[in-house]
Structures are given as structure tokens and as C-alpha cells.
Design a protein around this nucleic acid. Structure first.
Lengths: 197, 197
DNA sequence: TGACAAAAAGACCGATAAGTCCCTAAATAG
DNA sequence: CTATTTAGGGACTTATCGGTCTTTTTGTCA
């Protein structure tokens, strides 16, 4: 309790930094940008977050936890596992309607950006990926139980396919595909999940 | 014919620069790296290619033309449209076997890297994308003619789906998915193409 | 009130970025 | 051989990068 009290909220600052990394990527985001976005001074940022890279890692964590929590909640709330999957695909496909410059998923962006350089970061990202794939599998298991997806295929394999499809959909959105094309892709993905192999 | 003759081959230098951008991305590739990779002097590089960004744009062109030519050739040579599609998916899925650090596709990487900043570059990349989607459509049309893909779905829509799936597959490869998982994904993609919707 | 502790401001640092420019080297044309 | 023309080497410029450190401010506790 001693000393001058902090004038900012760490969580809010982290959220703002995360938003910036999400929009711009790691390399293109300068310390200067981060200071402007968070309103922190350089010394405060370094004292609290250590370094740019550590702040990025914390941003990845923060993003994953936030998104995962909201999706987990979504899965619990939705009427069916199938509608959960459907809604996610729709939401992603229509990102271009909500913003002129779709930024996709921070994790997918980052796995593409962090190539050779830092294996620690890659590991961190990959680890988070599996969290989401697990969640998709839960949704698929539920949809199979509810009769919307045939039991012929293993839920794990279906989850891998769905995850891959979503990554591709993200790229297509970024590549500026038309609404019609995106709708078509979503239709195909959904239909593929329903088809016994 | 006047003056000191050039001591390097422009096309070779461009190819080397392209390889570097492909491996490292734009931001992470410094002029210094480019000079080392091409063996050019700074003045030569600027005289011939103008700037780092122009060199990158030329690299995108070069990559697209090279890849497109080889795929076009491949489509002509292959026994069937279906085997062409199959082989491409296998080739991409197994990139991890050929190199410890898969670099994916320069175009997909770049569309992810060039976010907000430069719309000209984004346009250039998107334009190249459609070239490949067209080629996929040709392959699908052929496979439909040959009876390997049902005619129920429009070739254009199938091409959009295939293209999206390939982008996703590339992300999965980069994310270090296991061989089994990648095989599963490929199996699902192929099966989806064969299924009337 | 005064000692103390922590936060904030921002001057400062070395490294490196992309890009310019000048000078020398090397070829040909006359 | 000389003049001309272009290529190449690399010093130089300006800006910005991530990161450190000192100084000042602002609070708490005794």
C-alpha cells in the first residue's frame, strides 16, 4: 500500500495492447504505438509488462482466455451444438460487414507472423490453438448427441477439419472475398460436417 | 551496350529475394538480409529494383508466375483433374516432412501480414489469388467431366471452397499439426468435394 | 510533518532501419 | 588512349526501433 498509487488499470492496458497487436500484428506495432494506445509512460509499461515481447505473450493469453470464455459461455447458452457451430461460422464470415478492415483471429495471424524466429512464442500459440479445437470438439460431440451430426466420424477428426476450415475462412475474409462467396464456403463447411465419410 | 556490364542476373537476384521474403516475411526481412541473399550492393539493388517495397511487389509477381506456371503444367500433365487436386493437397500437407520450418504460401502469408497499411499491396495479392482460384476451377471442371466430382455443385463454388480449404491447411501445417491430423483434414476436404450438396 | 516507497515523465542510449550519394571500377565507342 | 557511360563499393543521413536510467511527482504510514 506504500508509495504512489498506480494511475492506470493493468487489465485495461493489457486489453488495449492486445487490441493493437490484433489489428496491426507484432512487428508493425511499435512501442510508441503501444504507449499511445494504453496511455502509459514508457517506464510504467516496462515496469508492469517487462518488454514488448512479454506484453505480446500476455496479450496472446488475454485474447485466448477472453475468447475462450465467451465461446464456452456461448456453447452453454445456445439451443444446440449445431447452432453454435453455425453461428460461429456466420459470425466469422460476416466480419467484413462489421469492419472495413477485417483483422481475423489474433492466434491465426500470429502463427503466420512468427515464423522461424521464436519457437517459444510459436509453442505458446499452438498450445492455445488446441484449447479451441477442444472446444469445437465439445460442440461436435453435443451436436452428434443431438442428432445433427452423424456419429460415423470421430468428433476429434471433425474438430480438426472444422478448425482448419475456420482458419481458411479467416484468410478468405481477409482476402476480401465477396459475401456470396463466403456464404458458399460456409455452406460447404456445414454440409461437410453433416456428411458421413 | 555502353558502360560497365552488370555483374549479376536480375532474374536470379529477384528469385533469391523472393525466397527470402517467402521464408521471413516482409517486415522481418531487412535490406541487409536482401543484400546478403542476392549478393548485390546497396546501390545496385536500388538502381535495379527501386526500393524494398517495389522489390517485394516484384517478388509477389515472380512467385505467382512461377507457381502458376508449374501448376498449369501439372494440370496438363496429370492423369486426371482429380489426381491433380489430390496431389496438391498431399504436397501441402506434407511440407513439414520436407522442411523443419514450413513457410507456407507467400501469398497467404502476405495477405495476413499486410493488414491495414498498404491497400495497393493488398490489391496486388488479392488479384493473384484469383488466378489460382481460376486454375482450381479448371481442375474441378476437368474432374467433373471425368466423373470424379459430381456435377451437382457449380465448379466456381467448389473452387472457392477448395481454395479456402487449402488456406486453412496451410495454417494447420504452420501450426505444427501432426501428420495424422493433416491426413485426416485432407481426407475430409477431398471427400467434401465428392459429395453433392 | 517528515521519511519512505512506488509511479510517472521523459532524457538518453546503442543498434539498426531504409534510403541517398559520391567516388571508383570497368566496360565500350571513337 | 580518351571520353563516355553504367555498375559497384560503401560512407553517410535521418528516423525510429526497443530498452535503460535518472529525476520528479505523488501518495501512504508512522
Amino acid at each position: 500500500m506504500l508509495g504512489r498509487p498506480r494511475e492506470f488499470d493493468i487489465d485495461i492496458a493489457l486489453d488495449q495492447a492486445m487490441e493493437l497487436f490484433w489489428t496491426q500484428g507484432y512487428e508493425s506495432t511499435s512501442l510508441h504505438n503501444l504507449l499511445a494506445a494504453t496511455g502509459l509512460s514508457k517506464s510504467s509499461l516496462y515496469k508492469v509488462f517487462g518488454s514488448k515481447q512479454q506484453l505480446f505473450e500476455m496479450s496472446i493469453d488475454h485474447y485466448s482466455e477472453k475468447l475462450h470464455a465467451s465461446m464456452k459461455k456461448g456453447l452453454e447458452v445456445k439451443a444446440s451444438g449445431w447452432s453454435f457451430i453455425n453461428d460461429i461460422l456466420q459470425f466469422i464470415a460476416h466480419e467484413g460487414d462489421r469492419t472495413p478492415e477485417p483483422r481475423g483471429c489474433l492466434l491465426v495471424n500470429s502463427i503466420n507472423e512468427w515464423r522461424v524466429r521464436d519457437l517459444e512464442i510459436k509453442k505458446l500459440i499452438i498450445d492455445r490453438f488446441s484449447t479451441f479445437e477442444d472446444l469445437f470438439e465439445q460442440a461436435i460431440i453435443r451436436a452428434q448427441r443431438e442428432g445433427d451430426i452423424p456419429q460415423d466420424n470421430s468428433s476429434q477428426e471433425l474438430a480438426a477439419f472444422l478448425f482448419c476450415s475456420i482458419s481458411g475462412l479467416r484468410s478468405s475474409v481477409k482476402a476480401g472475398a465477396s459475401k456470396e462467396k463466403l456464404d458458399t464456403i460456409v455452406r460447404f463447411i456445414l454440409s461437410s460436417l453433416k456428411t458421413p465419410k
